[in-house]
């Protein structure tokens, strides 16, 4: 395989710019997904009537439709009912919509893994339900959720590759664009792989460190 280094250096700045966009959208989308996920998980855990039904429907729709379709819907359908969006906020919204349900399921299983007697012993110490959730249940649930959470983050970052479909100039878009322009397929794809690895490997390593840390923080009571 011959890589044309001249082409590589020529493409590099374009990929850097695209990588920044990918990371930016990934970051905001995932943060929003965490917020949505936590909210949904708490509603489901507390079995709050009506709201839990709505959330169950959301989770099913979000998990059982491809991100690409969700993005098309947000990008092309929403403006028709008067909600205008630009490509970037579409990307963030799409990622949050998809990621929210995945995060919700991970957090919910974490919450449900905590035996009810933990709650009862906190109550019998005179802690309010809110303080019990905050100081006793959530920290344990979050620790249990870490492996699934890390897997979700990596999955969502990879899913950003479909953003090119709504003409966001992310890594995938850049690669396809350059291939179309100059036919330097090998160089373009090589850089694409390298840049995804540059983004994802640190996340993966940080994730494993986090997993080891929370495991160390006291389980197997």
């Amino acid at each position: 395989m011959d890589l044309n280094t001249e082409v590589l250096t020529q493409y590099l700045p374009l990929y850097q710019k695209a990588a920044v966009l990918t990371v930016k959208i990934g970051y905001f989308g995932i943060v929003l997904a965490i917020v949505i996920g936590l909210f949904c998980a708490l509603i489901q855990y507390h079995k709050i009537p009506v709201l839990r039904r709505i959330i169950a429907v959301y989770i099913e729709i979000s998990r059982n439709t491809p991100l690409l379709i969700q993005l098309f819907f947000i990008y092309y359908a929403l403006p028709k009912i008067g909600i205008s969006t630009n490509a970037e906020s579409c990307g963030v919204a799409g990622l949050a919509f998809l990621g929210g349900s995945y995060m919700a399921e991970v957090f919910r299983s974490g919450l449900e893994a905590i035996p009810p007697i933990q709650k009862e012993s906190a109550y019998s110490l005179g802690l309010s339900p809110l303080k019990t959730m905050f100081h006793v249940i959530l920290p344990q649930a979050v620790s249990i959720s870490v492996p699934g959470f890390v897997a979700n983050v990596i999955f969502l970052l990879k899913e950003t590759s479909v953003f090119s479909a709504i003409s966001l100039m992310d890594l995938m878009f850049t690669a396809k664009d350059l291939i179309g322009l100059h036919y330097n397929t090998i160089e373009a794809l090589f850089l694409l792989v390298v840049f995804y690895l540059i983004i994802l490997l640190p996340v993966s390593v940080l994730g494993s460190l986090l997993e080891r840390r929370v495991r160390h923080a006291g389980f197997g009571s």
Binding site: I117, Q118, E120, S121, A122, V136, A217, F219, S221
Partner: peptide, 25 residues
């Protein structure tokens, strides 16, 4: 109340288990 299965909070040290309710509640 003290339960059969102890039910200490596994993510907190012994000292923090004891001081949690007096401090927070």
């Amino acid at each position: 109340m003290v339960f059969q299965s102890y039910d200490l909070f596994p993510h907190l040290t012994v000292l923090k288990n004891i001081t949690l309710a007096p401090m927070k509640a």
